[in-house]
């Protein structure tokens, strides 16, 4: 996991990368509940409302399906997918 100066939490996952923009995350947890692998947990980093931001528990569990990105009301999550060769 890396945290950029802009407050982006980035996690390399097997099929790509999970990015979370802490300045946008309000910690609602809707994404957490929708994750089909149930792999999102509250991280140590705080979001814009001072609540914890989400992060995959184990990068290996994240399949980069993009559902968390889709349900986020604040566009705080970005899933980058590697091109399948």
């Amino acid at each position: 996991m890396s945290t950029s100066a802009e407050g982006v939490l980035s996690v390399e996952v097997p099929r790509g990368a999970f990015h979370l923009f802490t300045n946008l995350c309000k910690g609602c947890g809707l994404c957490k509940e929708k994750c089909p692998k149930d792999c999102l947990i509250w991280s140590e980093c705080l979001g814009s409302f001072g609540t914890p931001a989400v992060i995959p528990d184990d990068p290996q569990n994240c399949i980069a399906c993009g559902i968390c990105q889709q349900v986020c009301p604040d566009c705080a999550i970005l899933i980058e997918r590697k091109r399948v060769k």
Binding site: S4, V8, K26, P73, D74, C75, L78
Partner: peptide, 30 residues
């Protein structure tokens, strides 16, 4: 720098928006 994937037609400079955490308005407006 990685940018969030917001619709082009979202007004960027006032995000995060004013709706509560978990509010559905964000999703509808997305």
């Amino acid at each position: 720098v990685i940018q969030p994937k917001m619709p082009k037609s979202w007004y960027k400079s006032n995000k995060p928006h004013l709706f509560c955490p978990g509010c559905g308005h964000g999703m509808v407006l997305k």
